[in-house]
């Protein structure tokens, strides 16, 4: 078995564009779920809004790339307001129901036949990332990191640079925000919103702010998703994306700044490690009772088993505080 190949593929995935996309999506969820206790099950919709804003602005209407970025940010704010106004005054579970439905509505709209001229139907949209790659600071060629252990081409390097800079920027902003009295109000709302109301805080407004901020970060994840693939396809924004983002968040530890970052890197490292490992083992006849076509399913079984064990033995995630979990048992 080629362990070098297995590890280099896994490391590439751990710092690659998937990790960045899921990291940003999970950071958004961390603001909403981790800190404020809002169950947003429609994060995929915010990514779709981000991705399709750039794609439609550039590919369909031929307008500038940065206008698309601006439209994406504005639309994600509007989507958050649209979801929040009717549901945030109600119990937490209503938001979960409405967001999961909204995410599907967004996906079905962008893949609809009636709007094929605008959104491209099930094929989605391509040819919109030129302006982004025109800004690339890396000259064309292959780049190897860690002495050739892992490597990316110049486009990949540009995505990684922009992506991780955005992750760092968002994380630093949230680090300051969550240490401030503003962040304290969010955490208090997660614990008991009536108590916070009784202390004179406008709970509705804070919940809305959390929903909007998390949604905007989700749209940024959508930008990276679309640009890294130079393509926006509707079925990539299914509810599965949201649940993987939750997995990343819980793996790393909710309500921790580093949680989603380490969670995303580790999640994608393990996903590709298991997949490449199985494929190698089958190709080299180490495992003979499986074939390569079954790897996809087995991969999810193994990752799922790992997550179950994590929740049993370390429910707070990697960065969580065990004392906090113990409080719930009282």
């Amino acid at each position: 078995m080629d362990w070098f190949l297995i590890f280099s593929r896994a490391f590439e995935a751990g710092i690659g564009s998937e990790a960045i996309i899921y990291c940003l999506a999970a950071i958004g969820l961390n603001v909403q779920f981790g800190y404020t206790g809002l169950l947003n099950f429609g994060q995929a919709a915010f990514l779709a809004v981000g991705a399709y804003s750039i794609a439609t602005t550039v590919a369909t209407f031929g307008l500038p790339f940065f206008l698309g970025v601006g439209i994406g940010l504005v639309l994600s704010v509007l989507l958050a307001l649209l979801l929040g106004i009717p549901t945030l005054r109600l119990r937490a579970d209503y938001l979960a129901i409405v967001t999961i439905a909204a995410a599907e509505i967004v996906r079905i709209i962008v893949r609809s036949v009636a709007l094929k001229d605008t959104f491209g139907g099930t094929d989605g949209l391509q040819e919109f990332a030129h302006s982004f790659y025109a800004l690339n600071v890396f000259p064309a060629g292959q780049y190897s990191i860690l002495g050739g252990f892992i490597g990316f081409d110049h486009r990949g390097m540009w995505v990684l640079l922009v992506g991780w800079v955005l992750v760092a920027l968002v994380s630093v902003i949230l680090l300051f925000a969550m240490k401030s009295p503003w962040g304290r109000v969010l955490k208090a709302i997660r614990e008991d919103e009536d108590a916070v109301r009784a202390l004179g805080k406008n709970v509705f407004s804070y919940k809305m702010q959390a929903l909007v901020i998390g949604g905007v970060i989700g749209a940024v994840a959508g930008f990276i998703f679309a640009l890294s693939r130079s393509s926006a396809q509707p079925d990539l924004y299914s509810t599965e994306l949201t649940f993987f983002a939750y997995t990343v968040l819980i793996l790393g530890g909710a309500a921790r700044i580093l949680g989603p970052i380490v969670g995303a890197a580790l999640f994608w490292f393990l996903m590709i490690f298991v997949k490449t490992g199985l494929e190698e083992a089958i190709n080299k006849q180490v495992i003979t009772f499986l074939n390569v076509n079954q790897v996809g399913a087995i991969q999810y079984m193994i990752i799922g088993l790992g997550l179950i064990l994590l929740l049993i033995f370390r429910p707070q995630g990697i960065f969580g505080d065990k004392r906090e979990i113990a409080l719930d048992a009282r």
Binding site: A188, D194, A195
Partner: peptide
Amino acid sequence: YKVARQGMVRTFQLTKALSKL
């Protein structure tokens, strides 16, 4: 929340300590 800001605050029958703070 506006009632509380006006200077009329309440506590609850079932205590609402914010456990993880």
